[in-house]
Design a protein around this nucleic acid. Structure first.
Length: 348
DNA sequence: AATTCGGGGAC
DNA sequence: GTCCCAGAATT
């Protein structure tokens, strides 16, 4: 048997039973693929179930409000996925009469759908002959064929896309694509791949040359920025002052608290002398409580977050601020760190 | 071509 | 701590 036939045999007897594999409904497959972008199956699965229950069809999704979608997305990260899903659902409802497209060329035009996701939906829903190239496929191809071009360079992406397309089984693209990804996820793992039980190791460059650790090659140019968020908790235990974030920064359109960002970690005394703080609260800020600094790690940012409780009320209201009753907090989409900071206070 | 979008789990 | 996950959009 050749390389891919061996992998298909492995797949048929080792695959996980995942709900989105039991359908050709393009809407359901779209839902799963967006949720699984840069997200492990175990983390995305409960979100997939909740979204499908709440929005059984794309028509239901299109009728949702953005705040509601973001709330359902809370905790999953990369929140633009949720906002783009709503845009796409509404466009499909309007332009496609609620029938989700299944062709690669139509899918690739939609917000939140790139080359990988278009190929995935087209192949899984309609068996269109497009090869998926995700992190798993990069790894399997790099190791088996000994491809050393970096997977995140422009040249590398072309080479891997081309190799994947050449390898694609055009008789059954869906089965082929599922196989490549499942094999990468379950056996040809990033660390400690299970070469001992690998059905194709005899032909694998990386196994033969003991090179699995170094493949695939990836250029690492990750810059991490440090930021210091000083939040103010303004509450009478029945209401709380919340801030709706803007479009540009992290956590777009989600809710946090009134805040002053500083370029360094300041003492509480230094902080209350800042002009921004004085503008918000006047000259006499009364501090009830100053939380420990919470370190929150994102992909490109390290956040140092503190929460200061005060019994003052702002002397100037920001247009993005509003008081919410504490019962309504459960309806707001909160970034993970904000949720952690206030959940014990209000028994969320 | 480079950067920026989260959060969690494995090591 | 590091790496990476069924990547895409923006600059």
């Amino acid at each position: 048997m050749n390389f891919t036939d061996e992998l298909v045999q492995w797949y048929l007897s080792n695959k996980r039973d995942l709900p989105w594999r039991n359908t050709t409904n393009a809407y359901i497959i779209w839902l799963s693929e967006i949720i699984l972008q840069q997200t492990r199956v175990e983390q995305g699965l409960p979100y997939f179930n909740r979204f499908l229950e709440k929005y059984p069809t794309v028509t239901d999704f299109a009728a949702a409000h953005e705040d509601e979608v973001l709330k359902l997305w809370q905790g999953l990260g990369y929140y633009s996925r949720g906002r783009n899903m709503l845009k796409t659902a509404r466009l499909v409802q309007e332009q496609y009469n609620g029938v989700f497209p299944t062709s690669y060329d139509e899918l690739i035009k939609l917000k939140g759908i790139g080359e990988y996701t278009a190929a995935a939906i087209a192949s899984f829903s309609a068996n269109e002959a497009k090869a998926v190239v995700d992190g798993n496929v990069y790894r399997v191809l790099a190791r088996y064929y000994g491809i050393f071009e970096p997977i995140n360079s422009t040249q590398g992406k072309k080479i891997f896309q081309s190799a994947a397309s050449d390898l694609l089984n055009k008789q059954n693209p869906a089965l082929h694509n599922q196989t490549m990804m499942e094999f990468g996820a379950m056996l040809c793992k990033p660390k400690n791949p299970a070469c001992g039980i690998c059905p194709v190791r005899e032909g694998c460059y990386a196994f033969i040359n003991n090179a699995t650790t170094g493949l695939p090659v990836k250029l690492n140019k990750l810059k991490v920025r440090e930021r210091f968020f000083n939040y103010f908790l303004v509450t009478d235990s029945n209401t709380i002052l919340m801030n709706k974030r803007g479009e540009n920064d992290i956590w777009a359109n989600m809710y946090d608290l009134p805040m002053v960002e500083t370029s360094a970690l300041l003492s509480i005394d230094e902080l209350i002398q800042l002009p921004e703080v004085k503008t918000m609260f006047g000259n006499n800020l009364n501090i009830i409580e100053d939380s420990p600094i919470h370190k929150h790690i994102l992909t490109h940012q390290r956040l140092f977050v503190r929460m200061i409780k005060t019994d003052n009320y702002p002397v100037n209201m920001n247009e993005n601020w509003a008081y919410f009753s504490v019962e309504n907090l459960q309806d707001l989409a909160l970034p993970r760190i904000i949720f952690i900071l206030i959940k014990n206070i209000f028994n969320l």
